[in-house]
Amino acid sequence: MGQAQLAEAIRNKRAEMIQIGMSKGLDSEETIYCSQELDDLLNEYNRLLSQPKRFNPINDYIDYLLFLHKSTYKIVRLGYDAWGRF
């Protein structure tokens, strides 16, 4: 489940818990069970946020190529004596 879907599920479960709590009481078995389900969703969301971002070598390669392109353009445009001023 993605971050957006998980956030939506949390909003829905929170609204459901509030509704059950207001109609059946905060100490009802249904409210407690719904609260535990909400806790599970929140824990999953926090795990998702705490995961390190995945390394994407293609984006790094593209960034490197853009850097080389810009550097080469500066050298050609300014002349070879500009190489030392980078």
Score class of each variant (00 low, 15 high):
1 M>W: 05
47 R>P: 09
11 R>P: 02
1 M>H: 15
40 D>N: 14
12 N>W: 10
33 Y>K: 15
48 L>S: 11
14 R>F: 03
73 Y>G: 04
50 S>H: 14
2 G>Q: 09
19 Q>A: 07
9 A>W: 03
17 M>E: 00
66 L>W: 06
76 V>M: 03
84 G>E: 15
37 E>L: 12
1 M>K: 08
75 I>S: 07
53 K>E: 13
20 I>G: 01
17 M>C: 11
32 I>K: 00
82 A>P: 02
54 R>A: 11
50 S>G: 15
72 T>S: 08
13 K>R: 07
40 D>V: 10
56 N>R: 10
51 Q>Y: 09
20 I>D: 02
13 K>T: 01
83 W>K: 12
69 H>R: 10
33 Y>H: 14
16 E>D: 15
74 K>V: 07
46 N>W: 10
6 L>I: 01
23 S>R: 14
52 P>R: 00
81 D>F: 11
59 N>H: 06
28 S>T: 05
36 Q>A: 03
20 I>N: 08
72 T>Y: 09
67 F>P: 04
64 Y>M: 09
46 N>H: 04
20 I>L: 04
74 K>S: 14
32 I>Q: 00
23 S>W: 14
42 L>M: 05
55 F>G: 07
43 N>G: 09
31 T>W: 01
86 F>K: 11
59 N>E: 08
9 A>Y: 02
78 L>W: 03
82 A>S: 07
48 L>E: 05
49 L>F: 14
17 M>L: 15
86 F>T: 09
11 R>Y: 05
